[in-house]
Simulated assay, not measured.
Amino acid sequence: MSTTTSLFKRMTRIVMRCLILTTVLTSCTSKNFDSAEELLEYIKQPENGYLYTKSVNGVDFSMLYKPTDLLVDQELTGAYSSSKVDSLRSKYRAYLYFTLSMSKNNQELLSNVAGNKQQFGAMVNELAFGMEQKVHLYTPQKDTIAMADYIYPRMYGMSGATTMLLVYPRDKKVTNEDYFIVTIEDLGFYTGEVKFKIPTEMINNEPRIKFK
Rank of each mutant, 00 (worst) to 15 (best):
V135E: 01
S83V: 08
D73M: 06
I209A: 05
A161I: 06
M164G: 04
R93W: 10
S35K: 07
Q141D: 15
R93H: 15
S27D: 09
E206T: 03
T162W: 06
T175S: 12
T12Q: 15
T68E: 03
G58E: 07
S82M: 12
M147D: 02
G121M: 09
K210N: 14
G130Q: 06
L64R: 02
Y92S: 03
E201P: 05
L64Q: 04
D149G: 04
T162E: 04
F8A: 15
S83E: 12
E37D: 14
K195I: 09
T191S: 08
A161V: 04
Q133G: 07
G130R: 01
V24G: 07
K84V: 11
P140H: 08
T144H: 12
A36T: 03
F196K: 05
T22G: 12
E177S: 09
Y50E: 01
L110V: 03
D178E: 13
Y168C: 01
L76H: 03
A114R: 12
E185K: 12
L166H: 02
R10E: 13
Y156K: 08
N105F: 09
K44E: 13
E108S: 05
K54Q: 13
L166Y: 01
P153Y: 07
T77K: 15
Q141F: 13
Y179S: 11
A114G: 05
G121N: 11
S111L: 06
M102I: 04
I198Q: 01
F189N: 05
R17A: 15
L71I: 09
D86K: 15
K210I: 13
T22K: 12
G115K: 11
A79W: 14
S62Y: 00
M11L: 15
F98K: 00
E185A: 14
V24K: 09
M123S: 02
E201H: 11
L96G: 00
M155C: 09
